[in-house]
Each structure stands twice: as C-alpha cells, then as structure tokens.
C-alpha cells in the first residue's frame, strides 16, 4: 500500500535519461509542465503525448511503474471529469434535470484528464530517473546565481535532499511500526472514523520519536564530519554539461517550437 507512491522514488536503470545532467532534466520537466498550458487543442495533446512517449521509451522505466503514480490522483481526476462533464455550457447532447452533457463538456473533460495525466507522468518521470541527490545538486548549481542576492541556496538544497532522503526511510519505518502494532492486535482497517484516527496514535508516537532520534543522529554525524554550511564548500563531482546534454536542450527547443508552431497553425486553419 505505502510502496505504491512513485513520486520521489528512483528507478535504477542505465538509460540516456538517467545519465543526463540533472539541470537539463529540471529545466526539461519545468518546460514540459508549462508547455502543457500553452495550447488547448487536439494537435497539442498529440505532440505532447508523442514527446512524453519518446522520453518514457528513452528512460527504460517500465510503463507499469510510471502509471502506478497515477493511482494517487485518481480521485482528483474523477472530480475534474465529473464536474467538467456535467457543468460545462455548450451544445447539449443529453439532459436530465439540471445535469447535462455537452460536446464542449466531453472535450474539456477529456483534455483536462489528459493534461493531469501528462503533468503527473512528466514530473514522476524526472524523479524516477534522477536520484534525490542529483536533483538537489542540479537545483543548487542551477540556482547558484541567486546567492548574490543572499538566498541561502546551499542550505535550502541541503534541507531538500535530507527531506527527500528521509521519505523512504520514514515510509519503511511506518510500515514496520504498523506491523508491530498489528501483531499486538491493533486494527487500522475497521471501525468508525474516530476509532480509526485513534488507532493511529500507536503508530504516530513511535514514528515521531524515531524521526527526532534520526534527525538528532544525522545532525551529530554531520557535525562530526565538520559540516558548516555552503561557504567554501567544493564538490567531488562538479556538474558538467556534456554533448548529450546539449542534444537534450536542442530536443527540448525543437519540442517547444513544434508545439507552439503547430498548435498556432492548427488554430489558424480552423478559423
């Protein structure tokens, strides 16, 4: 159950996408996410879909693994579909009292769910192919110019990488604690809402205790290795752009240009 969350989980594989510079992937993902809001017609979705399909293919992450991340937004998706389907004004196809299905409604419902799916897959593709450490490295290097205006870039990225690092640990810990309490007859599945919330106390208390203990240990270990923030800190493996990264940027530009160009063309032709 807990293991189904794919956002923030790395999938180890040896692919072009895995080897790319994290900065490229960050910029790429951001561009892709923004690009999804630049159009509202069929051709746009087709181009974005093809781009996404190609990147998925390149990533060598099994499709079933990527789709798993969608489970978490299924409710949100259903809401959007239902609301858009029944509450959009336009050419009426079917009506029952105040509920009506319109051509425009179907269109928006389909497009919105496609957009949501693309958003989730696009962002989980980045976290699946980039380790949390690479990601924060990329962020830190990418945002380095902000240091000039006294933004604590290093500290922020360090905090992020620690937080990300702790997610799987705490998930695993939760799993173990739940099992230990279940072994003592705790029941997390049955009962009324109040009972279920109460049933969480035996899980949350040990979880908090262990989280604080871990944080304390980590701080101690960092101090023992003379960590004192970002000033004067150098890297063992500084990020360097390679030819592949250049190609990826080029691919990204081609994607955006094609997308914007073709969607505009399509609109002009329709009008």
């Amino acid at each position: 159950m807990i293991r189904d969350i794919t956002i923030g989980q790395y999938y180890p594989a040896d692919s072009v996408l895995h080897r790319l510079d994290p900065r490229v992937k960050l910029v790429g993902t951001l561009t892709f996410l923004i690009s999804l809001f630049l159009f509202n017609n069929l051709i746009g979705y087709v181009i974005a879909g093809v781009f996404l399909a190609v990147t998925i293919k390149l990533s060598r992450v099994p499709f079933s693994f990527i789709v798993r991340g969608l489970k978490t937004i299924i409710m949100l998706m259903l809401f959007t579909v239902v609301f858009n389907l029944f509450l959009t004004e336009g050419r009426i196809l079917w009506q029952w009292k105040f509920l009506k299905i319109t051509v425009e409604g179907i269109q928006t419902a389909v497009f919105m769910s496609l957009r949501l799916t693309f958003l989730i897959i696009g962002s989980s593709l980045m976290t699946l192919t980039t380790t949390p450490n690479q990601l924060t490295d990329g962020l830190e290097t990418g945002l380095a110019p902000l240091k000039k205006i006294h933004v604590p870039v290093h500290e922020i990225s360090m905090m992020m990488s620690i937080a990300l690092r702790f997610i799987p640990i705490l998930l695993e810990e939760t799993d173990k604690i739940m099992k230990a309490q279940q072994a003592r007859g705790a029941d997390f599945e049955e009962g009324k809402l109040v009972e279920r919330v109460k049933a969480l106390v035996p899980v949350l208390v040990p979880l908090f205790v262990s989280a604080f203990r871990r944080a304390n240990d980590l701080a101690m270990a960092m101090e023992a290795r003379c960590y004192r923030g970002g000033t004067g800190r150098t890297r063992m493996k500084p990020l360097k752009y390679t030819r592949q990264d250049g190609m990826a940027y080029l691919g990204l530009v081609v994607y955006v240009v094609t997308l914007v160009g073709l969607t505009r063309l399509w609109e002009m032709l329709l009008v």
Binding site: K176, A180, A183, R184, G185, P206, V209, S210
Partner: peptide, 16 residues
C-alpha cells in the same frame, strides 16, 4: 495474531 505473538526486533517500533 493474538495466538501467534510476534515481537519485532526494535522495541522502539511498538512502545508508545
């Protein structure tokens, strides 16, 4: 589970 009692390795996981 009440008839087959299981004590996990870390007591910290169950004391609350």
């Amino acid at each position: 589970r009440t008839r087959v009692g299981l004590v996990f390795q870390y007591p910290e996981h169950q004391l609350f």
